[in-house]
Write a protein that binds this DNA or RNA. Structure first.
Lengths: 247, 247
DNA sequence: CTAGTTTAGATTGGATACAACGTCAAACAC
DNA sequence: GTGTTTGACGTTGTATCCAATCTAAACTAG
C-alpha cells in the first residue's frame, strides 16, 4: 500500500469532485482527517496540493475553503484547452507520425466507429466512446513530445469540467447526444487526416473547433441546472451567480 | 509578518532558482529547515508546492530530489509560453481595449523608448527595460480577462528560463544585446498596433514570434556554457546531457 | 431590546516525538 | 579478494502536542 499522503490526496480530490462540499464551505482539517481515517498532517499536505490545483482556496483568516467556479471560468478553461490541444495537434502534424503512432490513432477511430454504428447507443457503447475519446486526446498530447505542453494541459484539466471527457454529450441515450458524438468523432477523423497530410494549421484549427462542442454542452448542462446535478455531481461547484460565493 | 509556510516557500524557491542545489541532489528536510530557521513542517509543505511547480521531484525511495532540466524542456516551455501569450494577445485584440488599457500599454512603449534612446545602454536603463517588459506582458495577460489562461501562463513561468524576463538578452552592455532589445521592443509596438486595429490573428502571430528571441537567447546562453552561470545561476539546473542526471 | 464586550471553545499553524523504512558501511564468509 | 549479510545510523512519514488566533455565544450595559 502507498503512503497516507497520496491516498488522502486522491480520496479528498474525489470527494471534492463528487460535490461533497458546497462552494465557499470551510474545509476543517479534523472532520476530514477523521473521515479519511488519518491524522491532520496528510490532510494538510493534500490541501497544499489542491490549492495549487485551484480546487480549494486559502481563507484570509487561515484554513481552506471550497472554491466556487463561475460559468465563465469553466468556459475560459475550455478555451485554453482548445488552444493547447490545438498546439499539440499542430506539433504532431509538423513532426510527422511514425507507423505505430498512426496505427494507434486509427485504432481509436475504429473503436469510435463501432461504438457509434447502431442506430441507438447502449450505455456500454457510450462508455466505450468516452474511453476511446480520452485515449485519442491523450495520444495526440503524448505524440506532440512537449513536456511543458503535457503539463499545462494536465493542470488545466484539473479544473472541473475543463477536461475532454467531462463535457462530452451526456444525454446520449436520448438520441440527440448521439448526433453530437457523430460530429466530434468526425472531427477526430479530420484531425488525423490533417496530421497525416502534415497540414499543421488545419489540424490546429480542427482541434480548436473541437472544444466548441464541449462549450456547447457546458451551456446545455448549465441551463438544465439542477437536473444535471444528478448525473454530474460536480455541477454543484458551479456558482449560480458571478463572484466567489464565499462570503 | 506572514506565515512560516509562505516565507519558507519563497525562500526555498529562491535558493533553488539561485542554483544552490545541484540537479539530482537529494533535498533533505532537516538541513533546509535549519538553514531557513524553521521546523520541518513548513519545509515539507513547501516541497509539496514546489513539486507541483515541477522544480523538485519525489524520489521513489521517499523524500525529494532536485530536478534537472534539459535544454529541450526549457525550449518547449518557451514554445508553450508563445502559444499562451499569443492567445492572450488575440483575445485582447478581439475584445478591444478601453481607453485606460490603451494608455497603460502606450506608457510601456514610451518607457521602452526612453530606456533604448541612447547609443549605449546603462545598467539602469537595462533594468528599466526589463521591468517595462514584465509589465507589458503582464498587462496583456490581465487584459485578456481569462483566469485559466492567466493561471496556465503563471504555472508555465515557474519553470526556470520559461518566463519572459528570464531570457531577455543579458549581454546588453556589450552592444549586440541592445540590437535585440530594439527588435523585441518593435515587436511590442507591432503587437499593440495589431491589437488596436482588432487584428487578432496578427497580434497572435507577433506574440508567438516574440518568444523566438527568447529561444535564441537560451541557445546563446547554453552555448556559452559556464560563462553564463555567473550571471544566471539557474543555468546550473540545466542538465548538460539528456536525461534526468539523477543517478 | 439592541449593541458591544468579554470569555470560552474550537481551529489552525507550527514544533516535536516516534516508528518504520531505507541506506550505507563494516565485518564475515566463501 | 569479492560478495553477502547484518547492524547501526539517518531520514522520512505520521501522529500528537502546544500556543496563538479566530469564532461564536453569552452576558452586560445603555
Amino acid at each position: 500500500m502507498q503512503s497516507q499522503q497520496s491516498r488522502v490526496l486522491v480520496q479528498l480530490r474525489d470527494l471534492i469532485l463528487k460535490g461533497e462540499f458546497a462552494p465557499g464551505e470551510r474545509l476543517a482539517e479534523i472532520p476530514i482527517a477523521e473521515r479519511l481515517s488519518s491524522s491532520r498532517t496528510p490532510v494538510r499536505l493534500a490541501f497544499a496540493t489542491l490549492e495549487q490545483e485551484g480546487l480549494v482556496q486559502l481563507s484570509p483568516s487561515g484554513g481552506y475553503v471550497m472554491r466556487a467556479f463561475t460559468r465563465k471560468e469553466i468556459d475560459d478553461a475550455i478555451a485554453v484547452r482548445g488552444v493547447l490541444e490545438g498546439m499539440a495537434a499542430r506539433l504532431v502534424a509538423e513532426n510527422g507520425l511514425t507507423r505505430e503512432m498512426s496505427a494507434e490513432l486509427h485504432e481509436c477511430l475504429k473503436l469510435g466507429d463501432e461504438a457509434l454504428k447502431g442506430p441507438e447507443m447502449t450505455i456500454d457503447a457510450y462508455a466505450d466512446y468516452v474511453e476511446m475519446n480520452n485515449h485519442f486526446h491523450q495520444l495526440l498530447i503524448d505524440f506532440a513530445g512537449n513536456a511543458a505542453l503535457t503539463r499545462a494541459i494536465e493542470l488545466n484539466n484539473r479544473l472541473p469540467f475543463a477536461a475532454a471527457s467531462a463535457t462530452l454529450p451526456m444525454h446520449s441515450s436520448t438520441g440527440d447526444g448521439r448526433q453530437w458524438l457523430l460530429i466530434t468523432h468526425n472531427q477526430h477523423r479530420s484531425m488525423l487526416h490533417a496530421i497525416e497530410r502534415r497540414e499543421g494549421s488545419r489540424a490546429q484549427a480542427v482541434a480548436m473547433e473541437h472544444v466548441e462542442v464541449a462549450r456547447m454542452n457546458l451551456r446545455h448542462a448549465y441551463e438544465k441546472g439542477s437536473e444535471s446535478i444528478e448525473i454530474m455531481p460536480a455541477m454543484r461547484l458551479l456558482a449560480r451567480r458571478q463572484g466567489t460565493g464565499s462570503h
